[in-house]
Design a protein around this nucleic acid. Structure first.
Lengths: 152, 152
DNA sequence: CTGATTAGTTAGCAC
DNA sequence: GTGCTAACTAATCAG
């Protein structure tokens, strides 16, 4: 806890993407002996290594160092999982927002179209009624009343 | 770092809401002397304390203990901020989803209505055209062609 | 300092 | 063991 030694290569190795907001300051400390040891294997290499390759690598080193390496590998992998997880959830909300927008567009288009068709319908209806009444007025005055009933 | 003493009251005090998924195991270690000291002040109390009350409280204890208390208070507050932040973002996506659903409903309703009005319009149009043609056929055979042109 | 947010770490689950 | 996710911690920013 009182040991402030940081990974030597962590700063140059850490960020996966651009990291404008957070100044990357490694926080995990470890023993001095491990610091020297760890610096011989970059985080990038360690992360991409298969478990088999790692076993081959750790065959020649101490039990403790091997455990620390595995632990660090797990952390590095988890870091990437977490990033992926966040990107995924951001993507999800972006998609929802897009879908929302397209639905809104579709809805307003449908309403516009509805208005048009509605006025067309009313137009044809009134033209029909007018013609109907006109025709019956021409032949008999009593049929004008009937016409409005028949108009629908 | 080799000191595995945990906060005695952390487990009973930690979760704000139900925490079904994660078994809350305190992870932060501290010195034994602090363990005894910290147990006299619950996390809940420490978090709700104002900075002034904390200062009054820490007047009688050592500099180191006071610093540790402040640090723990900050952690507890941050924990709550993080929770709030998560809830907020969850709420946001829930709201988007709801809005999406209501938009989808609205859209399908509008399309249904559109279909109805469209068939009504076509109905009136054809009735109008039929009547128009019938009328002109009655008076002159040559006007039937003209009728379809005038129908709109 | 307080509160919010982002990135990294840890625990635990599912496979 | 691997991958994912929720909660937690730490760093940083805005106010």
């Amino acid at each position: 806890m009182g040991d402030d030694v940081k990974y030597k290569d962590a700063k140059s190795d850490l960020p996966y993407g651009s990291n404008a907001k957070r100044k990357v300051v490694p926080r995990r400390s470890c023993k001095k002996e491990d610091k020297v040891f760890f610096s011989t294997l970059s985080d990038k290499k360690l992360e991409k290594m298969t478990i088999k390759e790692l076993n081959d690598y750790t065959r020649e080193i101490s039990k403790h160092q091997a455990q620390e390496l595995k632990k660090r590998r797990r952390i590095l992998k988890n870091r990437r999982y977490a990033l992926k997880c966040r990107v995924k959830s951001i993507q999800k909300s972006v998609n929802m927002k897009e879908e929302n927008l397209s639905l809104e567009k579709g809805l307003s288009a449908a309403k516009r179209e509805l208005k048009t068709i509605l006025s067309e319908r009313d137009n044809y209806k009134s033209k029909y009624v007018q013609l109907y009444n006109h025709v019956f007025e021409t032949f008999s005055a009593s049929t004008a009343i009937r016409a409005s009933k028949l108009a629908d």
